[in-house]
Simulated assay, not measured.
Amino acid sequence: MALTFTPESIPERLVYLVDDDEEDAFLFELTVQEVMPFCRLRIFSNGLIMLEVLADPKDRPHLIFLDMHMPYPDGLEILMNLKINRQWADIPVIMLTGIEDQEQISLAYQLGAQSVINKPSTQSQLVDIVMSVREYWFKTVRLPNQN
């Protein structure tokens, strides 16, 4: 028996994207609107701003996409701040990278990233990634309780 995806079968989810590249963020937003219409996406160009917003428990996301390579603070520094804070440590974080640096990828996993994904080079690849994320993170796994 095949299970089919319907947007009504998934409750609204809050997703954060932290990326300093405006074009990448815009394409990501369009893709999320298309593939995950049940998601409310908040985009941050700086991880420090996202951490400030997280101080309010009602703004706790279900999932965070975090660009690994940004100006200060970079994604790994933000990831470390998320994972050492007990309030936020259980929020799944998917790191996005455009650079093939095995040391940084290993460090991301050591710091607690759930996944490291290469930034796609085409819109089609981005759609495939977001569809995979939708199926895995919002249909297959159980996420921590949200307050």
Rank of each mutant, 00 (worst) to 15 (best):
S132P: 07
P120N: 09
S124Q: 13
T122K: 06
L51C: 12
M95S: 10
A113M: 05
F28G: 02
D20E: 08
Q114I: 03
L96F: 13
N81W: 12
I105T: 07
M70N: 11
N46Q: 14
S45I: 06
L111E: 00
D101M: 12
R86S: 12
H62R: 08
E77I: 05
A113Q: 05
E135Y: 12
E135T: 05
I64T: 02
V18R: 02
I64W: 02
D24A: 15
F38K: 00
C39S: 14
D128G: 15
V18M: 02
P7G: 04
S115V: 06
I91D: 03
G112L: 13
V93A: 11
E12F: 02
M68Q: 11
D74C: 11
L111P: 02
F26I: 01
L82M: 14
L143Y: 03
Y72A: 13
I91M: 07
P73E: 09
M80G: 09
R40P: 01
L17R: 03
C39R: 02
E8H: 05
M70F: 05
D24E: 10
L27W: 09
I91R: 01
G47L: 05
R13P: 09
S9W: 04
L54V: 11
M70I: 04
D101I: 01
N145A: 13
P92V: 04
F44A: 02
S132I: 04
I99N: 12
F38V: 00
L79T: 08
K83Y: 07
N85L: 11
G98N: 09
I91K: 00
T140I: 04
K119V: 05
P57Y: 09
M131C: 08
D74R: 04
D59Y: 11
W88V: 02
D59G: 12
I78F: 03
E23W: 10
R13G: 05
L143W: 01
I10R: 00
D19W: 04
V93L: 10
V127L: 11
D74L: 08
S121Q: 12
L17V: 01
Q114N: 14
Q87L: 13
Q123E: 14
E22H: 13
N145M: 02
R40T: 08
R13S: 15
V116P: 08
A55K: 15
S9F: 04
I43S: 05
V130W: 03
L66Y: 03
M80W: 07
E12C: 01
A89N: 01
Q33M: 06
R86M: 10
N46Y: 10
R60Q: 08
P92T: 07
L107Q: 15
N46S: 04
E22K: 10
